[in-house]
């Protein structure tokens, strides 16, 4: 499992606090490092702040205090325009897909290629079909997001996030709402991206079994902090009562 992981930290969160506009503190002192090529699963109760954590890493939210470093760049105080260089190297898979309503599945995946590359229409077609194939969405490319099921939307979202060949991919529940076979296929896609391109993945998931199987390390978010962050094996033998309850009861509730 250790192959393709280097010791370079591509994501470094230091004492990150985040409060929503109404003043509620969602994250209260998160420390997290992710190495290049690593697959890191983040688990935690619903509402614990996992999506918030991913958005902080993607620079979509700004921490109230603390610092966020991505790919060696401290992005904490960067302007939107300065952030764009880093963002081109990160793919984000949103929890509900966040596909562009007015574009078909094909155009959604082609969107980043059209915006940021000089590829010809033929090259774009080829690349988009390759990506749609990888997520099992070939044949639905002409459909609008409104005509897709939740799971299909999510898979198109994955294809779009991978289009520019990012070094880091942040997945927000990539397999929730998918049937077990499709979920397995997405999990192997994630592993494959690492094997082939050394992609670093941070995966928010409620699927504790996939998390154990897939991840090099798991981080457990609880009460606004990372409660434990360790290899799956170490987590299994961790005696903290919350950890035990979480991995045994399986999923959502505390």
């Amino acid at each position: 499992m250790e192959k393709n992981i280097s010791n370079e930290h591509v994501i470094e969160l230091e004492d990150v606090h985040y409060s929503v506009p109404d003043g509620t503190e969602v994250l209260s002192g998160v420390n997290l490092n992710v190495k290049r090529g690593e697959i890191m699963c983040v688990v935690g109760a619903s509402g614990a702040g996992k999506s918030t954590l991913l958005k902080l890493i993607a620079g979509l939210l700004r921490p109230t205090s603390g610092s966020v470093k991505v790919l060696g760049v401290d992005i904490t105080f960067l302007t939107e325009r300065q952030l764009n260089d880093v963002r081109k190297r990160i793919g984000v898979v949103f929890q509900f897909g966040a596909l562009f309503d007015s574009l078909t599945a094909f155009e959604n995946v082609a969107f980043p290629l059209r915006e940021h590359t000089n590829m010809s229409e033929d090259e774009i077609r080829e690349r988009v079909f390759e990506l749609l194939d990888a997520v099992g969405m070939r044949g639905s490319e002409h459909l609008l997001p409104a005509e897709l099921s939740g799971g299909m939307r999510k898979r198109v979202g994955i294809a779009r996030a991978l289009a520019l060949g990012p070094e880091i991919v942040l997945y927000d529940e990539p397999t929730s709402g998918l049937d077990p076979i499709m979920a397995g296929a997405i999990n192997s896609l994630i592993a494959d991206m690492r094997e082939r391109y050394g992609v670093t993945s941070v995966i928010v998931t409620h699927d504790i079994h996939s998390a154990f199987e897939l991840s090099d390390r798991m981080a457990m978010l609880h009460d606004g902090r990372i409660l434990v962050c360790d290899t799956p094996r170490a987590i299994k033998s961790n005696h903290h009562p919350f950890v035990q309850r979480f991995i045994h009861s399986g999923v959502r509730e505390v």
Binding site: R87, F94, P112, E115, H116
Partner: peptide, 8 residues
Amino acid sequence: DALRSLAV
């Protein structure tokens, strides 16, 4: 957010 994450 998706637009921003795609550097647009």
